[in-house]
Design a protein around this nucleic acid. Structure first.
Length: 414
RNA sequence: GGGGAGGUGGCAGAGCUGGUUUAAUGCACCGGUCUUGAAAACCGGCGUGGGUGAUGAGCCCACCCAGGGUUCGAAUCCCUGCCUCCCCGCCA
């Protein structure tokens, strides 16, 4: 959530920055005015409450002393009516305020390139050179069907479209990748955690999926529970409503979870194959840091994901997202895109974001800084999307005879 | 799922026949005195968010699981939800 006090102070600057993300200035003006109104009305209410407290205390004293309380009762009654009326006013404003404030995305960092959509993202660097094939490399779904590794039809039968079943070496490889990634991250100082795959609405509000993106989530009937769209949600919310006593060292976590997404609005995109599924495995990195540490940890996380790809021998590139392509909660994001020779394209396989204090303010995650409580910075990044890693291995390691070579580092996990 | 008990400040734990208690007390923690240093002892401080002050002191408001309600006044009474513990049932 935006810092409303900051908006009040630096309105023009923030409005300018959010314009690059497609937020209308009108909305921000409305928010600012509402905030001012909220504060003044709240003050009036508090004065009435103070009066009521004093009168009520008097009431008790008078009664004990046997004094006449008729006049006092009249005054206290009329004050009470005023309080109720004002409470309603304040509550309404507060609701409107929340409604708007929770819809506004994070402010982009100054070094985020200004742009409209993914076309304007900026490549930072390429790592590893794509291999030359002396035959026409196939796409992963062809390989998957030829080898009997991926069963798309039965996935659909069991659930619906955009579900699939892994078989043979692919099933084992999926599991091997998860274990390899977790070990890799542990060696980089991330603590392994196992979390619930369903979370409640307060949790989703904390990381920014709710209230705006409810349509992207699978909800459990008649329960305040949703399937997680990413492990970022449970991991970051571990510290929701907490004040971390000692954050001299950043908290760095890693977890494997399946992820569930409705993929609303992506109709027609990547319908073929395993790129975009309703259920996919991911190993996630999350960090909680002091504000002054988050840039350093952000780099560490990008490097961890990139080195992981390198260790698997997968060519990839780093891309800095532009303002128009940033996710809702992110102040800055670097995507890692892996080379898929079958498609002849780089495709997203990881996304590392610094949300600064945006999620921390929503989720009330703070730390003790001397006597003061300050908001933390939260960061998240995939390391990696497992299904996409699997297909990247299939496409990059395919042989002329149609078989797939297994990367050395994975052999001990199979 | 059925029956019972209960949810109070970092922890423990009083208050719960509603009012001059602004949530007692202990532990932990922080600062100080004492000490070569430490412990003990003693003194002081010690929840969160917001408002108004100067990011000071002070003052004010809200919060005793959450949301409603009764009342001039609620930690205390009523309703709903969530959670914990015990017993029973079911179960990987």
């Amino acid at each position: 959530m935006l810092d409303l006090k900051l908006l009040e102070k630096n309105f023009d600057e923030i409005a300018e920055k959010l314009k690059n993300r497609g937020v209308e200035e009108k909305l921000l003006t409305q928010l600012k005015e509402l905030f001012a109104k909220y504060k003044s009305q709240k003050q009036v209410l508090e004065e009435l409450q103070a009066k009521q407290n004093k009168l009520s205390k008097l009431f008790g004293i008078y009664k004990k002393e046997g004094k006449d309380i008729d006049d006092l009762k009249k005054e206290v009654d009329s004050n009470k009516a005023k309080i109720s009326a004002h409470q309603e006013i304040v509550r309404d404003i507060e609701e409107d305020l929340k409604k708007i404030a929770l819809q506004i995305p994070n402010i982009p960092d100054p070094d985020v390139p200004i742009g409209k959509d993914e076309e304007d993202n900026v490549e930072i660097k390429k790592v590893l050179k794509p291999k030359e094939f002396d035959f026409k490399p196939l796409e992963h779904w062809e390989l998957g069907e030829n080898l009997g590794w991926i069963d798309f039809k039965r996935g659909v039968k069991l659930a619906k479209s955009r579900f699939s079943v892994l078989k043979k070496e692919a099933a084992a490889l999926e599991r091997a990748l998860i274990n390899y990634m977790l070990d890799f991250n542990k060696n980089r100082g991330f603590e392994e955690v196992y979390v619930p795959f369903m979370v409640n609405s307060a949790t989703l509000l904390g990381t920014g999926q709710l209230p705006k993106f409810e349509d992207d989530l699978f909800k459990i009937c008649d329960e305040d529970l949703y399937l997680i769209p990413t492990a970022e949600v449970p991991l970051t919310n571990l510290y929701r409503d907490e004040i971390i006593a000692d954050l001299t060292e950043p908290i760095k976590l890693t977890a494997y979870t399946p992820c569930f997404r409705k993929e609303a609005g992506s109709g027609g995109k990547d319908v073929r194959g395993m790129i975009r599924q309703h259920q996919f495995d991911k190993v996630e990195l999350v960090a909680i840091t002091k504000p002054e540490d988050s840039d350093k940890v952000f780099e560490e996380m990008v490097n961890t994901a990139s080195d992981l790809l390198t260790s698997l021998g997968l060519p990839h590139r780093l891309v800095m997202l532009c303002t128009g392509d940033l996710g809702f909660s992110a102040a800055k994001t670097i995507d890692l895109e892996v080379w898929l020779p079958g498609q002849g394209k780089y495709r997203e396989i990881s996304s590392v974001s610094n949300t600064r204090d945006f999620q921390a303010r929503r989720a009330k995650i703070r730390f003790k800084d001397g006597k003061k409580n300050r908001l933390v910075h939260t960061l998240n990044g995939s390391s990696l999307a497992v299904g996409r890693t699997l297909i990247a291995i299939m496409e990059n390691y395919q042989q002329k005879d149609g078989s797939i070579k297994i990367p050395e580092v994975l052999k001990k996990y199979l």
